[in-house]
Computed example of a mutant assay.
Amino acid sequence: MSAPGAGAARAEEFATRLAAVRTRIAEACRAAGRDPAEVELVAVTKTVPAEDVALLLDLGLETFGENRVQEAGAKVERVAELRPAARPRWSLVGGLQRNKAAAAARWADRVESVDSIRVADALDRAVRRLLETGGRAAPLPVLLQFSVDGDPRRGGVPAADLEPLAEHVARCGGLQLRGVMAVAPLGMEQDRAFSAVATAANRVRTRFPQANTLSAGMSGDFESAIRHGSDVVRVGTALVGDRPLASP
């Protein structure tokens, strides 16, 4: 059980952190000649309890990013119990295995990590079944995860395969191609990484104008991502503090 006043202290901590993040976003947008309203803030809440998500909702945050399908499904239900009047949006920002596509399709409002035709097909089948049975009201918006350096040990599709994957997803009746997501590789200079991301995203957008969302940038590098046109920043540590590493 939490100590008396623990919830209020946590809410105050979140408010302070959120104000700092919003200031950073605003300053980055000013430097880039952009309107801060153009940048969506996704609070990455992996390993964060539903009670904390409820406090973040109270502070005006609307979109939450989760990395693990099972953890997220239970959290979505619990947040709905805690804040029944709220309508949070949930993004899957971590890698997705095909055997978890059906579970993700039940709660995700957006999947940002489609990086193969097999994953796209698994999601498409799951969403179409839900559409037929009333489990979803609309197709699932997805972003394609781009691998900046093409390293197969990390998630993401290399540059040569990005447009073919976009073509495939655009034909999936259960999915809506909305854009590109990327993570800057460790050790790569930030502006170089996000310049490559922007180039890849622009290629996809040119062929598929509806794919106009770029999700790039996290707690330590989102200023650079904003300079290179990111519309979505995924912020965890800067909002909720350090969290213990969780097993996959």
Results as ranks from 00 to 15, higher is better:
Leu140Ser: 11
Arg110Met: 09
Arg129Pro: 03
Val233Asp: 04
Arg154Gln: 09
Asp35Phe: 06
Asp109Cys: 08
Thr63Ala: 10
Val44Trp: 06
Ser224Asn: 10
Ala54Trp: 15
Ala26Asn: 10
Gln210Asp: 14
Leu61Thr: 05
Ala193Val: 01
Ile25Val: 11
Glu12Cys: 05
Ala108Gln: 11
Gly33Pro: 08
Ala193Tyr: 00
Asp58Pro: 01
Glu40Lys: 15
Ala184Val: 12
Arg22Ile: 00
Arg68Leu: 11
Ala9His: 06
Arg234Phe: 03
Val197Pro: 07
Thr213Asn: 10
Val21Glu: 08
Ala31Trp: 09
Arg118Lys: 14
Pro139Glu: 14
Val235Cys: 00
Ala182Pro: 07
Glu167Tyr: 06
Ala138Gly: 05
Val76His: 00
Arg83Tyr: 13
Met188Trp: 12
Val111Asp: 04
Arg125Lys: 15
Ala170Val: 05
Lys75Met: 03
Ser215Glu: 14
Gly95Arg: 07
Glu189Phe: 03
Leu56Pro: 00
Met188Ile: 02
Ala85His: 14
Val39Gly: 02
Arg153Tyr: 11
Ala216Gly: 09
Gly217Gln: 11
Ala159Asn: 13
Ser91Asn: 10
Pro158Trp: 09
Gly135Trp: 00
Gly174Cys: 10
Ala32Tyr: 01
Asp124Arg: 12
His168Ser: 04
Val114Cys: 08
Pro244His: 08
Gln190Pro: 10
Val69Phe: 08
Phe14Cys: 12
Arg83Cys: 07
Leu123Ile: 11
Lys46Ala: 03
Gly94Glu: 07
Phe208Ile: 15
Glu71Met: 01
Ala54Asp: 10
Ala138Arg: 15
Arg106Phe: 03
Met188Arg: 15
Leu186Lys: 07
Asn212Val: 12
Ala20Thr: 12
Ala196Asp: 05
Thr23Trp: 00
Glu27Gln: 06
Val48Ala: 12
Ser113Lys: 13
Ala80Thr: 05
Gly135Thr: 01
Val76Leu: 03
Phe194Tyr: 03
Ala54Glu: 11
Glu12His: 06
Ala120Leu: 04
Leu144Met: 08
Asp151Met: 12
Ala103Leu: 12
Ala15Asp: 11
Leu140Phe: 11
Asp231Gln: 13
Ala9Tyr: 07
Ser230Ile: 06
Thr199Arg: 10
Glu77Phe: 13
Ala105Pro: 10
Arg171Trp: 02
Ala32Leu: 02
Gln97Lys: 04
Met218Pro: 04
Arg118Tyr: 06
Pro36Arg: 08
Gln97Glu: 08
Leu162His: 07
Ala19Thr: 11
Leu143Ser: 01
Leu123Gln: 14
Leu143Gly: 00
Glu38Trp: 09
Ala216Phe: 02
Ala26Met: 09
Gln70Pro: 07
Leu144Ser: 05
Ile117Val: 14
Ser2Phe: 09
Ala101Arg: 02
Ala182His: 07
Ala201Ser: 05
Thr47Gln: 10
Arg24Thr: 03
Glu77Tyr: 11
Arg234Ala: 03
Thr133Cys: 00
Val127Lys: 08
Leu96Gln: 05
Asp124Pro: 10
Leu143Thr: 01
Gln176Gly: 02
Ala120Lys: 12
Lys100Thr: 05
Asp221Val: 01
Leu130Phe: 02
Ala184Leu: 07
Ala201Glu: 09
Ser230Trp: 04
Ala15Ile: 14
Ala19Gly: 05
Arg98Thr: 15
Leu239Tyr: 07
Ala196Pro: 10
Glu189Asp: 15
